[in-house]
Each structure stands twice: as structure tokens, then as C-alpha cells.
Design a protein around this nucleic acid. Structure first.
Lengths: 235, 235
DNA sequence: TAGTGGTCTAGACCACTGA
DNA sequence: CAGTGGTCTAGACCACTAT
């Protein structure tokens, strides 16, 4: 029996996970403190700390000062979704990316958008609608509002060659973001530009971003029917 | 002007983020190496390392040995979704949790399920359907298959008092998991037990888990129309 | 080969919190 | 008050990789 040597934070993590999976340490049970584990594994406490800290961040362990570390009873596992520009998403699938601006206007956003951007009062914003194509076929729709107060320079950009999606990411930093995933029947706009029949079920990703000075943008990306958001789960 | 002192890894991270947001360090540009930053901030290199490592993990920085650290051009932001048992989800909303088993059978799963569980051959599994209620109203449906080869003890559990969702988490560890989010029109099963009309758009979360010895379970949770999955975005 | 990040260590002090 | 995790430091060595 050859046990792999424990000398890196990853091997400590592996050993801890092995003990949890093999129920040597059962859900809800307390595990030894960092100092003792460091002695047992013959490594520094810092190394043990890093291994356990990551497991606590991913919800497998619960840690409290003084009372110690326990195996979580109802682990909240954290699924991680990579949010990137639509062009990359399409290119990562091995398809040719295409983009077409539908329209660009200045208008008053609907109440739901004002609310999502955490504004007390409606104000005129830049409204951009566009379609992203994979191998010439509509892949996703972009329905976007951009705050002209926070991003006045957006008014002069035409969004014909480059999507608002990319232009904003490259040119306008943000501090804080929210993301929300939901399903709705296809709106007339989606029926037309995604070329789908009435009552089709559409997956949406809504995203809003802010700077210190105020809201930057609110966008809904609507995907073709059948689209899946796939996550890599930690540990 | 009182600048907050920089003496913790968090304050280093804040300062780095400030410089990125204020475009002192522009997208694509290289930033000083850890040693220099440690000197500038008058702290240890370990502290700088931790601050930068986390930013790299969240996709804001790109790091390579020898060539150094750059501000990411197209940051892939990582949205984190907390996946927890449905009971907790409902209780966190301040509602009363209710649960009802619909049926429990042994059957051959459809091909899509066999495929999602990465099995070459179909084999009989335990099939459980149940509804989770919030304040007495259907909140989500659970459509689950459990491998009797990997989890033989599931056959004897009745899932009447405790949902398979909770029982599995407390009693059957797993190694690896996948998660997938999609939208479909309501199936007849969903129409009946969620009490929604035909053609309603339903948000699904599909999840499969594995042990060393084989697949554990495959489950689809179907939510009431209007349900949102909300994410906290890192940084 | 040399520069950069990745990690480990021992020791120290602090912050929180249960008894 | 005392036990535990949280963090910082200085120094060291290693791993990767651009040149």
C-alpha cells in the first residue's frame, strides 16, 4: 500500500476530501484543529489553513473561531458559471461569429429596467438591440439599456461593427454586477429575430452593472430554444 | 486627503481594483511584479500574492510565470450560484416548507437520463417524483433517478417523510457533479403538479452526481413560472 | 538562463467567540 | 479567559517559460 505523500496544500485537501467521502469524518462531525492536522501531515499550519479555507469557501466545511471546523451537514455547493462575451461563447463552440445591430435609439426604459438598475427615477437611456449569429444562424439576442449619465461617450459609438457587449467590457469598467437567470415564453421581438414560433420557451440571462458614479448598463441575453447554461461545480 | 492604510490582503486587493477601475492600469497592460508591489505597499510578498491570486481566479487578472501579471482584456467573470436543498431555498424565502412524494418506482430510465449519467447501458433504477411546496403552494418539482447499483440502500428508504434531495445529501457522498440550466415548455407532468397551463415556460436545473464507484443520481428540478436563479458575482 | 509567480515554513499576533 | 481560526512576515526554494 503506497499512500501518496502529503506535502502540498492540494494533497492535504485531497486527503481531507477522502476522509469525508469515506465517512471517516461524517457530516456534522468536528475535525481536528489546524495545529493538530499540521502535526499529523507533517507540514506547516499555513498549508493546512489554505486547504481548509478553500473547502470552507466551497461549502464543504463550516469553520468558526474557537468552536473549530465541522463537516457541513447540508453543504451549499457553489456552481460556477463563466460569464463571458457572446462572441467568445460562440467561438468556443467552434462556430463562426456574426453580429448585426438591429436598432439604436435614445428612449425612456420600462419600469422593470429602471428598477433593475436601482434608479429611483426613469431617465433617458441609450437602447441597443442586436443579434449574435453562430454560423449565420441567430444564436442570441441582446436587449440592452446603457445609462447616458454614467457612460455619456456611448452616444457617439455606433455599435455597428462592434457589439455593445464587447465595447462596454473594453471601455467601461464596473464595480458591482448582478446576474439573474429565468425562463419566459418568446416575446414578439424574440419570435422575429430568433426566428422561433409563438409560445417557444426562452432562456434569459439578465445582467446589470454599476460604477461608483451610478448604473452602467442593463442587458438581457435571450438564447435559442434548447440552450443550456453549463456549470463546473467546485469540488 | 486621507488614503486608507494598505496592510491587509484585502486592502491590497481594493487598491489594485481601484487602479483598474480608474484605468491607471488599463486592460491588457502589465502591472508591477509581486516583489515591487510588496515594497510599494510596504507589506510582505505573500500578502500581495494572496490579493492577486484571488483576482486572477475571478478572471480580472491574467498571470503567467516569467511574463508577469496583466489586466485581463476580456474578463471572464465567474458568477456563483448557491445550489442547496430545496427545503432551505424555500425556508430562506421565509415560507413554510411542505413536501409530498408523488411516486416511487423501479424502472428503466429514458435514454437522455442514461446518457447524462454517463452510462453505456441502460439499467433499472429507482425513480422518484415529488413536489416541494412553499406555504402550501407547489414551488418546485423533483424528477429523480437513483442508481441502485451505486446506492442499493435507497431501495429500502420510502422518501415519504424526507425528500430524496435531503436523504441523498446526508447519506450518500459524491465526488463529482454537473449542473445544467435550461428552459422548456411545461410537460404534462409539470402542468399537473405545478398547476400551470399548457405551453408555460419552465426553468429547469439538471444535476448529476458521481462517486468513485459510479453514478449516484440524476435529478431535474422544475420551478414555478417566474422563478429566477440569482447569482452573486465575484468582485 | 534569468525573471516571474507558486508555494512552503516557522513564528507571531490578532479577532472572534464559547464556556 | 482560553481555544480556535485568520492573517501577516521574512525568507526560502521550486516550477514554469520567454528570451
Amino acid at each position: 500500500m503506497t499512500t501518496p505523500a502529503i506535502n502540498s496544500w492540494q494533497s492535504v485537501q485531497d486527503e481531507v476530501l477522502r476522509r469525508i467521502h469515506n465517512r471517516i469524518w461524517k457530516p456534522g462531525a468536528q475535525i481536528p484543529n489546524e495545529t493538530d492536522l499540521a502535526k499529523e501531515f507533517n507540514c506547516g499550519r499555513t498549508t493546512v489553513n489554505r486547504a481548509l479555507r478553500e473547502l470552507a469557501e466551497s461549502g464543504i466545511l463550516e469553520r468558526k473561531r474557537k468552536s473549530g471546523t465541522r463537516v457541513a451537514l447540508h453543504p451549499v455547493s457553489r456552481a460556477v458559471i463563466a460569464v463571458q462575451i457572446v462572441r467568445r461563447e460562440i467561438e468556443d463552440r467552434g462556430a463562426n461569429y456574426g453580429y448585426a445591430l438591429i436598432d439604436k435609439t435614445v428612449d425612456t426604459p420600462p419600469h422593470a429596467v429602471t428598477f433593475a438598475m436601482e434608479l429611483a427615477q426613469a431617465e433617458d437611456m441609450l437602447h441597443v438591440r442586436a443579434v449574435h449569429l453562430a454560423d449565420g444562424v441567430p444564436y442570441a439576442l441582446e436587449y440592452r439599456w446603457i445609462s447616458l449619465r454614467t457612460v455619456p461617450q456611448a452616444r457617439d459609438f455606433d455599435f455597428v461593427r462592434q457589439s455593445a457587449n464587447e465595447w462596454l467590457l473594453e471601455n467601461v469598467p464596473y464595480n458591482r454586477a448582478t446576474l439573474s437567470i429565468l425562463a419566459t415564453p418568446a416575446s414578439p421581438f424574440e419570435q422575429e429575430y430568433l426566428a422561433v414560433p409563438e409560445q417557444t420557451s426562452i432562456l434569459h440571462v439578465e445582467r446589470a452593472t454599476w460604477q461608483e458614479t451610478g448604473p452602467v448598463t442593463f442587458v438581457t441575453i435571450s438564447y435559442q430554444p434548447g440552450h443550456r447554461i453549463i456549470s463546473s461545480t467546485t469540488s
